[in-house]
């Protein structure tokens, strides 16, 4: 997905002089030629993440459409006040593109994990949040985001779905209809969700955009009012959005995702998925308990 980001971003920089890119060393190699050619709007500020975000916002103050990019831990968490004040409070638009997902590089340890990025952005109004599950989805949401004027966060990860389903930026895609409840799979969790719900009579929705939250599709496809959300970042991040969407419907809700406890483990992304219960087998147990044996789960 990061390679796709490089290709799409270079194309956008080449074709639209109002597009700008700010980097803080990460992914610089993909943009050396662009930096050379357009030094005023393709900028590497060095390992300075506060300046990364503020520079992007300053570009926006002059009317350019900035994209700022680094690992999520440094883009959203380290420089959060810059995101909050220099974009939101100044009321300028821009696109933040993170790499690293929640734990793309677990061998790098906790410092390079950012499972809390979407929850953190939820404290700010009006951010659009895209969580693409495949490279072509990343391409499309990036092109949409750069063509727009708002504040957009695009969360890239090396985790990607093998299965390709149609997706609609801004809306949830109905992958499968059933009557036994709804499972909403966000971005790269779709493969595991489909495997976990195989031969189960449930509705599966697929989201590449989680903010704004497509309450309309959730309500329109709701069968038995039991909703499980599987998110590749902090478990329960979208619980408030589901509650708001279904506030006139008595419902049950299960939020699955990355646990907030620090594991202090290295290893591989697969091992961390399993540790957080996000592999297909763990998801099947959790979803079956929630959808088929609610009394037992309680």
């Amino acid at each position: 997905m990061r390679t796709q980001f490089g290709e799409t971003m270079n194309d956008l920089l080449d074709t639209d002089p109002s597009t700008a890119l700010v980097l803080a060393e990460i992914s610089r190699q993909m943009f050396e030629r662009a930096i050379e050619r357009e030094p005023d709007r393709v900028i590497n500020v060095g390992i300075r993440e506060q300046l990364l975000v503020s520079t992007a916002a300053g570009l926006a103050l002059t009317g350019l459409r900035p994209v700022a990019h680094t690992f999520g831990a440094f883009l959203v968490e380290r420089a959060f006040e810059q995101v909050k004040l220099d974009f939101s409070h100044q009321d300028v638009g821009g696109v933040l593109v993170s790499a690293g997902g929640s734990f793309d590089w677990p061998a790098g340890g906790y410092t390079h994990m950012s499972p809390g990025d979407v929850a953190l952005l939820d404290t700010l109004p009006g951010w659009t949040v895209h969580v693409p599950g495949r490279a072509e989805e990343a391409d499309r949401v990036l092109r949409d985001a750069v063509a727009g004027t708002g504040r957009v966060y695009i969360r890239l990860s090396t985790a990607a779905n093998r299965v390709a389903v149609p997706s609609r930026p801004g809306r949830f895609q109905v992958v499968r209809r059933g009557v036994g409840g709804t499972v909403l799979a966000v971005g790269p969790t779709l493969d595991a969700v489909l495997a976990a719900t195989q031969d189960r009579d449930v509705t599966v929705l697929y989201a590449t955009t989680v903010r704004p939250f497509d309450a309309q599709t959730l309500r329109a496809t709701l069968g038995r009012p039991a909703v499980a959300v599987v998110e590749p970042y902090l478990a329960g991040t979208s619980a408030r959005q589901v509650s708001d969407a279904l506030r006139s419907v008595p419902h049950r809700l299960l939020g699955l995702g990355v646990g907030s406890e620090e594991l202090r483990r290295y290893g591989t992304p697969r091992e961390h998925e399993r540790a957080h219960g996000l592999d297909a087998a763990s998801l099947r147990r959790s979803l079956d308990d929630f959808l088929l044996r609610p009394a037992a789960a309680a």
């Binding site: 700010v22 500020v45 520079t55 300053g58 570009l59 002059t62």
Partner: peptide, 8 residues
């Protein structure tokens, strides 16, 4: 920092 972006 905002001024740096503004200049650029």
């Amino acid at each position: 920092p905002l001024a740096v972006g503004t200049v650029l």
